[in-house]
């Protein structure tokens, strides 16, 4: 029974959603919209589970004094402070509490609310910092990948070199006196447009069919791995 009910739900709603795709009528469109809304509402409740999981894990780390347990305090305090500021002060529009602070302490909040200040001056810079690491990781990964150990590695190295050179102004400058067909920018364009695109489309076609097959397997109850365990 524990398996049959979820499988039946997956089958019924899977078939309904397939049928819905072929019906443009308003009833069908509204049903689809309601389903999406239901998903969002259910998702919000899942955040309660998520936050409780986060608190539990970090509380455990502090309790057991695991390496780096001090950072768990930072996480928990940040979580509480951000939540309190967000709930009391408002997210996009200032609440009366924020307005009171602004009036009495003559604060100037350009972002409108305390939460947006945290988002703008803490969350975004931290995200940008992590993202900027990518440049260094690309350099180290490229150094490893472009070692000419075999014929295919040499091919990769040469292609990467041509593409990188063709993407910077000096590439165009170096080949400007050659016939147009040998201009680096044109060669790069050709590489990206034909061999690269052909390979990508090959993978994409497989992915498309794989997605359809997986969806059908789930709807028909052939694939049950997402329920946990085997059959």
């Amino acid at each position: 029974m524990r398996r049959k009910i979820p499988l039946a739900i997956a089958f019924v709603f899977g078939i309904i959603m397939i049928i819905q795709f072929f019906i443009p009528h308003r009833i069908s469109v509204e049903f689809y919209r309601n389903m999406l809304n239901a998903l969002v509402i259910v998702g919000i409740f899942y955040y309660i589970l998520a936050v409780s999981s986060l608190i539990r894990v970090h509380r455990g780390k502090i309790k057991r004094k695991k390496p780096g347990w001090g950072y768990s305090y930072v996480t928990l305090i940040s979580l509480v402070v951000t939540a309190v500021i967000g709930v009391l002060g408002g997210a996009y529009q200032a609440t009366r509490i924020t307005s009171w602070f602004v009036q009495h302490f003559h604060w100037q909040i350009e972002q409108g609310t305390g939460l947006m200040v945290i988002y703008t001056y803490i969350q975004i810079p931290m995200g940008a910092t992590m993202f900027s690491l990518l440049a260094f990781f690309i350099a180290s990964a490229a150094f490893r990948a472009f070692k000419a150990r075999s014929l295919t590695a040499v091919l990769l190295l040469v292609t990467a070199f041509v593409v990188m050179l063709g993407r910077v102004p000096i590439g165009a400058l170096l080949t400007r006196r050659l016939p147009e067909i040998f201009h680096l920018t044109n060669i790069v364009e050709w590489i990206l447009k034909y061999p690269n695109m052909a390979a990508q489309r090959g993978i994409l076609m497989g992915i498309g069919l794989g997605m359809i097959a997986t969806s059908l397997k789930i709807i028909l109850g052939i694939e049950r791995g997402y329920l946990g365990g085997g059959d």
Binding site: L49, A50, V51, S53, L54, Q123, M126, G127, T129, F131
Partner: peptide
């Protein structure tokens, strides 16, 4: 466990 929904 859950970490964060922020990508980076």
């Amino acid at each position: 466990f859950f970490l964060t929904d922020s990508q980076f």
